[in-house]
Design a protein around this nucleic acid. Structure first.
Length: 429
RNA sequence: GGAGGGAUGGCAGAGCGGCCGAAUGCGGAGGUCUUGAAAACCUCUGGGCGCAAGCCCCGCGGGUUCGAAUCCCGCUCCCUCCGCCA
């Protein structure tokens, strides 16, 4: 969430930021108003409390010196402030809660250098890499759901039988390919990132910390009986891993990686991209995430993007990197780069990674701070994260791009160690 | 799931309802001493809001009281035992 103090001192700057995102800037006027009222009520409450505290101390002194009569008088005096204190406290709490609820729903402001734009169509392609998307042959122009079905490595019908549509079932070499991708990616990050295996069900507070709640409750699976949420990304537990803690500056940057299942209801996109693996309710993903000082953040953003890009390069896929414009930025994001790979059979660019910088927006929600070496001041960390990578769409692109004229599928050499040395799926027809 | 015990500052560990934001020890920072270091000694050493006065925080949330770390209720988490179980 945004820093209320900035709302007080840089209201217009923040409003301009929200406007760039296409969000309603007038919400901040309401924040400023609630903040004023909360502080005013708090001040009044505190001065009444100061009176009560002083009198109560006096009562203690009088009691000890045996002057019970005067003590009684002071107790009565203190009692007379009770109702006022209660009323002011209740009102201050109410305004405070309203302020917090509002603040939790207001998006982050975009970074200055994020490109302006109203929506998806204004995103900027930064660069292309890998093979020429137009150079794929006719044998590669078969969608992955057909390739997967004929090779027996993707069983969407059985997935639907067991759990419903958009719950894919991978089989045989298809399942093993997923396992290989996860192992390969985790190993590729092992040089600098601590591997974590976090819970995939989390509390509401954890979902609030990274920004999924309260606004996007409909997008997530909720286990009502236990009041737990199925994580939509490892970002959720990894961001909260340090919640409520104060780290030493020397601990930063903290680099974490995790492979987890991800669950998304896709409530807002019913009927879209329903074929194959392009949009599914459950998928596996390897995430890389960091806590940094504000100074370290830009370099870390570049590092995460390089890592995600390196994986796509090693897989030999055609890809492009997109600088997300202000109007398309997620609620918590200040700056994001997406990596899209080209799937020649589906003839689609598929988003397989989103590498984002959140500033202190999540850290404030999570109360995740660090102590600066220079002056021992305590400040919020910056959080950054990226997928490296999301596997179903990679799986789809690999299967389509790897398809040979003889209908077998050849997989990238880099995966061989995790595939028992075999990089071909199926036998020639 | 059942029974019991516990939660205090970076850690350990005190804390009759008032003089407790909290003893003491350790750890950490600075200083004295020393050629240097160790030892010894001295000082400092939680967080939040606020310009300040002041207010709040002893797991979290309520309550009792003039006054709560201390009493009461609910919750969460941890530990022990039993049950169940990958």
């Amino acid at each position: 969430m945004l820093d209320v103090r900035r709302v007080r001192t840089e209201l217009e700057v923040l409003k301009a930021g929200l406007a760039r995102k296409g969000a309603d800037p007038t919400e901040l006027d309401r924040v400023a108003e609630l903040d004023r009222r909360r502080r005013e009520l708090g001040d009044r409450r505190d001065s009444v409390r100061a009176r009560i505290n002083a009198i109560s101390k006096e009562v203690g002194r009088l009691r000890r010196s045996g002057d019970d009569e005067e003590a009684e008088a002071r107790m009565a005096e203190s009692r007379s402030f009770g109702d006022e204190e209660k009323a002011l406290a209740a009102e201050a709490d109410e305004v405070g809660a309203e302020l917090r609820d509002l603040l939790l729903r207001i998006p982050n402001v975009p970074a200055d250098d994020a490109p302006d734009g109203a929506g998806e169509h204004d995103n900027v392609v930064v660069r292309h890499g890998g093979p020429d998307p137009d150079a794929y042959g006719e044998h590669q122009r078969v969608p992955h759901w057909d390739v997967g079905a004929s090779l027996g490595i993707l069983d969407l019908e059985r997935g639907a039988k067991v759990a419903g549509s958009m719950f894919p079932m991978y089989r045989g070499a298809g399942a093993r390919l997923l396992r290989a991708l996860t192992s390969w990616a985790l190993d590729r990050h092992a040089d600098a990132f601590e591997e974590v295996r976090p819970p995939s069900l989390v509390r509401s507070a954890t979902m609030v910390a990274s920004g999924q709640l309260p606004k996007f409750a409909d997008d997530a699976y909720h286990l009502e009986r236990d009041d737990l949420w199925a994580i939509p990304t490892a970002e959720v537990p990894l961001t909260s891993l340090g919640a409520g803690e104060i780290l030493a500056e020397g601990d930063l940057p903290v680099r974490l990686t995790a492979a987890t299942p991800c669950y998304r209801r896709e409530a807002g996109s019913a009927g879209r991209d329903t074929r194959g693996l392009i949009r599914v309710h459950e998928f596996d993903k390897v995430e890389i995430l960091a806590y940094t000082t504000p100074e370290q953040a830009p370099a870390m953003h570049a590092e995460l993007l390089e890592r995600a890009e390196a994986l796509v390069v090693e897989l030999g896929l055609a890809y492009r990197i997109i600088d997300i414009c202000t109007g398309d930025l997620g609620q918590s994001h200040a700056r994001s780069f997406d990596i899209e790979v080209y799937a020649p059979g589906s003839e689609l660019w598929l988003e397989v990674s989103s590498v984002s910088w959140f500033g202190d927006y999540q850290a404030r929600r999570a109360d995740l701070r660090y102590r600066r070496d220079a002056d021992a001041r305590i400040d919020h960390v910056h959080t950054l994260n990226g997928s490296a990578l999301a596997w179903p769409r990679i799986w789809a692109a690999l299967v389509e791009a790897g398809r040979q004229p003889d209908a077998t599928v050849v997989l990238p050499e880099v995966l061989a160690p995790w595939l028992g040395g075999a990089t071909t799926i199926g036998s020639p027809r």
